[in-house]
């Protein structure tokens, strides 16, 4: 099913608000989903996963300051943080410039959304960062370099990593991957091509997930009443003049 970028953004934002997220968080989620879908990832289904578990099945994140810098950690050990909060928090943390070079890991329920948040922060603020996540059974690193993001599959020393599916690791500087095998999934050029195509042609989205988002988005609408219908918009109900 085809959606324009603007439509998808609006639906996701409203769905998040309908599910209880505050407006700014909802905006960030909408941005992340549009970014993912414009690259061919199923951002819409990611949004559904994230909002389904929000807020009861997820934890928050908190900032921890140690001698190396600022990191995020899960507020509740053993429970993944919601990408709704963790995604923007990762982006915010990058901006402080206090993330240790050695990086840090945190558990996020929908890691792909965290990648989108970090990539968009880097694009907006002309920064670089690297984020490792678990995607379709493999470890991938997103190298976010200002407006582009190169996604690479990482195989550690001949094996595909069996890291936790929710673990994301953020580095502000390029991590040492000399002992790993790298296979490019999306290079910078293809990144730009996919984005441009999305801008001109719109996005193909998973219809079932979109329907779920629309159900949540409808929760932001006020039910019709006679009074609302008659007085809420200021015009008459018939205009035959």
């Amino acid at each position: 099913m085809r959606q324009s970028l603007s439509e998808l953004y609006s639906t996701v934002r409203k769905a998040a608000v309908g599910q209880g997220a505050t407006y700014g968080i909802a905006e960030d989620l909408a941005d992340a989903v549009c970014w993912l879908n414009s690259l061919g990832f199923d951002g819409v289904s990611c949004a559904v996963d994230c909002l389904t578990h929000w807020p009861s099945d997820t934890s928050a994140v908190r900032l921890l300051r140690d001698e190396t810098g600022l990191i995020l950690e899960n507020a509740k050990s053993g429970t993944a943080a919601s990408a709704l909060l963790a995604g923007p928090a990762l982006g915010d943390l990058l901006q402080t410039g206090a993330v240790p070079d050695s990086g840090f890991s945190v558990s996020v329920d929908v890691p792909l959304l965290a990648l989108a948040a970090v990539a968009q922060t880097c694009a907006r603020l002309k920064q670089r960062a690297w984020l490792m996540i678990h995607f379709e059974g493999q470890a991938v690193i997103g190298e976010c370099n200002q407006e582009t993001c190169q996604v690479t599959i990482v195989t550690q020393e001949g094996t595909t990593t069996a890291r936790s599916t929710t673990e994301v690791t953020l580095w502000p500087s390029q991590p040492d991957q000399s002992r790993n095998t790298m296979e490019c999934l999306i290079n910078s050029e293809e990144f730009s091509q996919r984005r441009n195509s999305a801008l001109t042609k719109g996005l193909v989205v998973c219809e079932a997930s979109l329907r779920q988002l629309e159900i949540w988005a409808a929760l932001t609408l006020v039910p019709e009443t006679e009074r609302s219908r008659e007085t809420g918009a200021g015009a008459g109900l018939l205009d035959n003049d």
């Binding site: 407006y23 409808a218 006020v222 609302s228």
Partner: peptide, 26 residues
């Protein structure tokens, strides 16, 4: 300010007289 479920029409309501303020536009 709110959006009605009726064809997404934008409307303007009175907070202390009508329902719907929980869906207020920002």
């Amino acid at each position: 300010w709110y959006v009605s479920e009726n064809k997404l029409e934008p409307r303007f309501g009175r907070r202390y007289e009508e329902a719907g303020a929980g869906c207020e536009m920002p």
